[in-house]
Design a protein around this nucleic acid. Structure first.
Lengths: 205, 205
DNA sequence: GTCTATAATCAGATAGAC
DNA sequence: GTCTATCTGATTATAGAC
């Protein structure tokens, strides 16, 4: 069978995309599981089933690899935002966003970064795609936060930036994995618990 | 001047203790600052002002070094508990404990561990002093949690273990450093903010 | 016990054949 | 583009003089 050059290119491109998707999934899982520093490229290559050197044909450094995973996560967040009902209350949107993040985290599909400094930070800050995505996501969440404070559903005395950080922090909350490790609760229960302590606090009312 | 053997031994012992205290302080700061993986023994040695090889005369591995810092942190926590007024309400004790931890963290004097797995975990679990300290601290906090739930100041529907984890997690909460990095708030304000979001939640009441 | 010098290991990155 | 084999640098850990 004779293929046109265009079809051949398209096929190869698709193969490439599929492989890169496989790499991203492996990186996501490893990043969620052990963090950037502990993740080795040998592991990534082994999990994808390719040689380590081949990774460098797709991404030119370990930092680049992780940055790509983060860019992907930002895109997925924005897709999720787009799927929310347009008429929903801002507080419900915030809760939905945090819930979505924690579900992905528990499923090992959220490449949460280490809170502490690493060589990644510099790479990420220099990465236009990531920064654009981060800013868009932050703007979206920030708008909901201000709306929720304006309509009285969120505490007005808290600085919006502190609320934003608190929500972001749920993506790397160790309470999630500790409870998961304990084995006493289902993932769904864990998400409900942490969501409740985050928004409602520990104190009785 | 002639010294008795006893005095000489005591002096040397004291010198040793002083040096080990200096090492612990350096480890504390580095552990709080960049975490276990990113901390190198070269840095520790440089900060203490001794040769790297000398560290191994005091602690036989990097894990051991960090474990010693954690044991020390547990002891200090217990000392702090002992300094609390005996008649205080359990909820006040919990708040005081979390506040104390966050203040140390912001001052760079709390060797918070990475939430994620590392070679440290195995070493710590095998370390009797650490585990004993951890259990004692957890028992103390756990008792306060149950008392606070019994007297209605803490939400009864939350599993005590989830509350305990949530309190522990404040020791490595990235919100602290993010707000500190922003430079808009004093350390005291940051502690108040995070304490408030932890116990009172984000929602308006 | 402290030092200088060095071994041993591991992980990120590259060379070059195919 | 993918592979095997290798380089390079960083870091933990140790040897041996003093």
């Amino acid at each position: 069978m004779i293929k046109s050059p265009a079809a051949k290119t398209s096929f190869k491109t698709q193969m490439l995309k599929t492989r890169e998707e496989a790499i991203m999934q492996a990186v996501n899982r490893l990043l969620a599981d052990k963090g950037f520093d502990a993740m080795t490229l040998d592991e990534v290559a082994a999990q994808v089933g390719i040689a380590k050197a081949s990774l460098y044909k797709h991404y030119c450094s370990k930092e680049d690899l992780a940055a790509a995973a983060m860019v992907r996560a930002m895109r997925r967040a924005q897709d999720f935002f787009g799927s929310l009902p347009p008429a929903a209350a801002p507080l419900d949107n915030l809760r939905a966003a945090v819930r979505w993040t924690m579900q992905l985290k528990l499923a090992g599909d959220m490449p949460s970064l280490p809170s502490q400094n690493s060589s990644l930070r510099a790479t990420l800050i220099a990465n236009r795609d990531y920064m654009d995505g981060l800013i868009e996501v932050s703007d979206r969440l920030g708008a909901w936060i201000e709306e929720a404070q304006a309509n009285g559903s969120l505490r007005r005395e808290l600085p919006a930036i502190a609320v934003l950080y608190t929500l972001y922090a749920r993506a790397c909350d160790p309470v999630l994995e500790f409870l998961q490790m304990g084995g006493q609760h289902s993932d769904e229960e864990i998400v409900d618990l942490v969501l409740s302590t985050c928004f409602d606090g520990l104190n009785a009312r």
